[in-house]
Amino acid sequence: MTPMDPAPLRRDLVRAASLAALAPALPVAAQPAAAPAAAPTLRVNGAVHDLAGLDPRTTLLDWLRERLDLTGAKKGCNEGACGACTVLLDGRRVNACLVLAATLDGRSVTTVEGLARADGTLHPVQQAFIDHDAFQCGYCTPGQVVSAVACITEGHAGSEAEIREWMSGNLCRCAAYPQITAAVQDAAARMARGEA
């Protein structure tokens, strides 16, 4: 791999990310802050990346998409309104468009690309979205899936009403909400049975 040949770099990054991915749905432990002398780094789907030299304006979302080519998180509204950019930061769901990457030294991010197992087995939430046909155009789906993983692990998937309330930060302009709600309910049940 050379700097002149970015395509293998992308593939290697994605592969490294999947190999290093932790068990799905487990919050990733916060990393201790790096020593002052150390270069700032951010762990994404298990792989450590350098944050040095970033324009401070770079959001986590732009950094994931433009630097790491992790384009699962989508830029919908870029103002925290749509949820399409939802990722897990130290295991908690956040809007990646509202976080400056340069502030994340020593922390861990999981994107939708980091949910499946290394052998390609989908996360139960991903499988449930397929089984319930829980998307139409698909644009909001990565954010919905990541948000649903957090919704379930937070314990906010106990009923249809609770899922609708705690998933309300993810808009679906195709209005696949009934199928999304069913998928989250199903995935929560599968995960409770230990099928994760």
């Binding site: 925290g80 939802t86 809007n95 948000s147 957090a150 919704c151 309300s168 930060g169």
Partner: peptide, 9 residues
């Protein structure tokens, strides 16, 4: 207030 992910930030 807001959404679950906004309230985490």
């Amino acid at each position: 207030a807001a959404s679950a992910q906004l309230r985490n930030l």
